[in-house]
Design a protein around this nucleic acid. Sequence first.
DNA 1: TATGAATGAGTGTTCATTCAT
DNA 2: TATGAATGAACACTCATTCAT
Lengths: 204, 204, 204, 204
Amino acid sequence: MNRISRQQPLKPRKVPRQPRSAETVASIIEAAAQILETAGLEGFNTNAVARRAGVSIGSLYQYFPGKDALILALMRREKARFYEDAAAALGKPSGKAALEYLIGASVRQQLQRPVLARLLDVEESRPGLSKEMAAGDTLQSLLVTIIARAKPGQKRSEVAAGDMLAMIQGIVDAAGARREKDIEDLERRVRAALFGYLSRIGKG
Amino acid sequence: MNRISRQQPLKPRKVPRQPRSAETVASIIEAAAQILETAGLEGFNTNAVARRAGVSIGSLYQYFPGKDALILALMRREKARFYEDAAAALGKPSGKAALEYLIGASVRQQLQRPVLARLLDVEESRPGLSKEMAAGDTLQSLLVTIIARAKPGQKRSEVAAGDMLAMIQGIVDAAGARREKDIEDLERRVRAALFGYLSRIGKG
Amino acid sequence: MNRISRQQPLKPRKVPRQPRSAETVASIIEAAAQILETAGLEGFNTNAVARRAGVSIGSLYQYFPGKDALILALMRREKARFYEDAAAALGKPSGKAALEYLIGASVRQQLQRPVLARLLDVEESRPGLSKEMAAGDTLQSLLVTIIARAKPGQKRSEVAAGDMLAMIQGIVDAAGARREKDIEDLERRVRAALFGYLSRIGKG
Amino acid sequence: MNRISRQQPLKPRKVPRQPRSAETVASIIEAAAQILETAGLEGFNTNAVARRAGVSIGSLYQYFPGKDALILALMRREKARFYEDAAAALGKPSGKAALEYLIGASVRQQLQRPVLARLLDVEESRPGLSKEMAAGDTLQSLLVTIIARAKPGQKRSEVAAGDMLAMIQGIVDAAGARREKDIEDLERRVRAALFGYLSRIGKG
DNA sequence: TATGAATGAGTGTTCATTCAT
DNA sequence: TATGAATGAACACTCATTCAT
């Protein structure tokens, strides 16, 4: 089809029933991640992904109705991995501890595969994909909950959550781009940013 | 020739000396900006830019050796416009005032043409382009100077400047994406983020 | 793009201004005709057409927005050639002579390039194309006019015209498929069919 | 394997002996008919047929050696159904009655599933298939027999039969395309065409 | 110097067919 | 024998870039 994606279907095409297929699907998604990391957005193409995954292009299209669906699946995988970690924040005794935990999870996630994380963040804002993802939503609502506990009475906490998410992503992406490795230090700086922001932003 | 840009030259092919050429170059760059805004990264192509600029594709290639050079020129134009504004920060009486001015300039710049600004930020991190841009550098050094005045004794002020730049960009891009219009409010939040960060980040 | 034509544009993409282009366009259309004749509907593809025309696939797409547009252009060329001939029927002294002339033109047209004519007839009924062609219309109205002169008072002359057109096409296509060469004989049989039909179909 | 069918075998791969298989074969053929009707020639593919039939693609290929064999089987089914009806014409008392009966059978057949009938007519002329079908033959010889009774002494009755078949098909296909429903009226017109033709075509 | 026709490698996607299970 | 995952050649179409005019 076209290069310009004309309202391409995004749902997975076939739910793999046999274990063989599940492996294929997983290997394709991981290949997509690797291609994105090594070739960037403009080197990312379905043939390269299939080749890297060691499957035929036909197989790729059996499971993903198009290029965007592939990126979407990769996003979901990364989101899911992040959530598994981040959700534990809600179990923390204090709002502060919860927020600190969330910061830790974000930093860990982003520095694990910094290039991948960055590119997925970029793609997330693509018109076609953002709808399907409804991505920030879940994370944002998690953060709203945490803010409510960390700083009761905060007005416009969705706006604050949006800003804080943007700060985390901004700082950590940039650190990833600089190939920073010192997680401790990075976490400290993100904490400074978030708690500093929270302490100064209007209560209402 | 290939799609994948094989180490394409990035310098302008011809330095326009006659006013006619300068106009042509400017119109091409502005056309590039508009195509980027209306068609996005994946709709951005040299033929479309030439058409929008009202010149032939041949003329476009007479002034720009390739697609990337065009994007680069657009980036430089935007940077230059921003600097014209931001440099005034150095004339402010206090470090705090300077930083506040810089924040104002950033917000203004980003909200003027939010889509364009966002996409250029994305492109800026493309390996091929970032080298040529040496982008953050100048802005970062400006910020380092301001930090030195606003908070003398700050250790690792390059790192702090990097973080703060990332925060500004993160918050303001997100606001642009949400189509926020209230500049006052946005500036207030960015100030909270930056001054909050500065107040908490280790002095040494 | 997709194989399944998703409401592909059908208008010519670029009106050739230079004589060079006009030649290119003509050569592409003729190549399309030849490919259709030699490879049939299922061997008809844009790459083959471009190769046969001696132009690059890119050039083909500069003038035709898609495969269907190419077929459409070929149809129009054939229709135009036919009309140049058939329109002379209106100048005939009697309705009978006009109808006989029209039959002659049809037979000539169809036996000139029988395979091509047959395949275009088939394509003409493809949903996507038939709208754009509005093809039969003109021919049908010509025939309606002629019927009115040949047999005044004929009721439902549009229906009769439709039937007669179908008869001409049916008989002549079949003759073409059988590789008949005797135009005289074929014309005689078509006349028998049409005048026989007209003499028996209800006047009112 | 290739798309372009390389002289694919057309005989059924396995002659079904058990009732189970016969059912499967029938359901596949009917599915093929339905896909042809709903998706047209270009939406007709073996995977879709198998899905519609509720069998696996592997099973389809167990009974049919390829796509063309499937179409061929469908053609044969339709021909057979038509013959069951049409053969009764031979029992009619007069040649005229026989011809009228044959016209009726043709109209009935074509209007039953007009889209299907039309598409099969189109396919019938595909070089690869027509050989195997030897399609017109049987019907044509039936018509030759009838002509001999209706109009003894008619010269070149095979040619006449060919023309008449083409007329029937042409008129009735066109009527089907126009979604005509009035069988009576259509039969009347076809009779006018055929008897008109017969009365005027040279006896010797 | 400007034009725009021409190029062709590249990319997304389909679908007939095979074959391991 | 039935299944459906896998294959890969084929094809539609784009767009960066060149070069004859």
